[in-house]
């Protein structure tokens, strides 16, 4: 397995000119809203609305946002559990956005998802060994003995004792179940893992260890992560780059450090400001306290202009009329806000 040669990559950064593993361009996932007896379409929810970003090889790209912002839909669309309604998803140089289920099968070996709630993502009627071996069976890989060996090896890799093989999920703790889910995702040696809130169902003392495991695996197996989460503090610790989503749109995208040191978008500022810190020492890393108002509006009826304007502490008159574009505000740093345009013109 590809474990050793990647070690070095950790230190010399990933700026070799090779193409990013995943390139998402203007991705759209609209859901129709139907009504009436005839199920006529009366509107649509733009769950993902023109999102573009790259996931580079070996990096962790985090999508952050609150409930209803479309981050989970985004992750599942990229894993092609949903078909996008627009835009492209280039994975390893190939557009997978329009592939049929049959053509997707080889792609599925490369992109795997780890879900938020391991209780729901593991079939309660199957033993751990069958859950972890399922990808091998589906793809018809290996003999029975080889499969068994691979499963034992994976279980060891996620630090679970071998005797868990014969247990059912409900005999395991939440953290153990999530390790099984991770093992299943690794079975086919994928290169990209979509981590959909992988630790938010776990207690913090368990979360810490699962995060440590994910970091270890990334280094050893040369994995790229697309991590979807609402926990900004967590992303600061583990993500290389971060995209902030609001109502289906990417509001800001920047390297993790930049985002926390110099957030450009008012929404990012509010998110940072709202983080409940645990230790006094964290306060230094938070922006001035901002008085926050309102909640995410109904995604089927988003506000005009900038989607965030009704809650924005910096909103100006134009915000309700003009829809801002993503503009460059620094190296590898884009943000969507009308104020940036003004800044630019002033400069």
């Amino acid at each position: 397995m590809s474990s050793d040669h990647t070690r070095a990559d950790e230190t010399d950064s990933i700026d070799d000119t090779d193409e990013p593993l995943l390139q998402v361009r203007d991705l759209e996932k609209y859901y129709p809203i139907t009504g009436g007896l005839l199920k006529k379409q009366i509107g649509e929810v733009k769950a993902v609305d023109g999102v573009s970003f790259d996931v580079r090889r070996g990096e962790t790209f985090a999508i952050v946002g609150e409930s209803g912002c479309g981050k989970t839909t985004l992750g599942k669309t990229i894993a092609r559990l949903h078909a996008p309604t627009g835009g492209s998803i280039r994975f390893d140089g190939r557009d997978i956005s329009a592939l049929s289920e049959r053509d997707l099968k080889p792609v599925r070996r490369e992109i795997q998802v780890v879900y938020q709630d391991p209780t729901s993502s593991l079939n309660p009627r199957k033993r751990i060994k069958d859950i972890v071996a399922e990808p091998l069976v589906v793809h018809d890989i290996g003999t029975k003995a080889e499969r068994r060996e691979r499963v034992a090896e994976l279980l060891e890799r996620v630090d679970l004792p071998e005797d868990f093989l014969y247990r059912y999920p409900n005999e395991l703790s939440g953290g153990q179940k999530q390790r099984v889910a991770i093992a299943r995702a690794l079975t086919l040696n994928p290169s990209l893992l979509v981590l959909d809130e992988p630790t938010s169902a776990l207690d913090v003392s368990v979360q810490a260890k699962v995060i440590a495991l994910l970091e270890e695996l990334q280094a050893e197996l040369d994995l790229s992560y697309l991590m979807i989460t609402h926990d900004l503090s967590l992303t600061k610790n583990i993500a290389d780059r971060i995209g902030v989503m609001y109502l289906g749109k990417l509001m800001e995208k920047a390297p993790a450090e930049t985002l926390f040191d110099a957030p450009q978008n008012p929404y990012t500022e509010q998110l940072l400001s709202a983080i409940p810190i645990v230790e006094e020492s964290e306060a230094a890393f938070k922006p001035e306290r901002i008085s926050i108002r309102g909640e995410t509006p109904d995604p089927s009826d988003p506000p005009s202009g900038c989607p965030f304007h009704p809650r924005c502490h910096r909103a100006v008159d134009d915000c309700s009329r003009v829809e801002p574009e993503l503009v460059d505000v620094g190296t590898d740093h884009v943000s969507r806000c009308l104020l940036h345009d003004e800044d630019e013109s002033e400069m």
Partner: peptide
């Protein structure tokens, strides 16, 4: 418990 919480500073992965 306190060490395990992801913070803006850092956190302890040992749990």
């Amino acid at each position: 418990l306190v060490d395990s919480v992801p913070k803006l500073t850092e956190f302890d992965r040992d749990g």
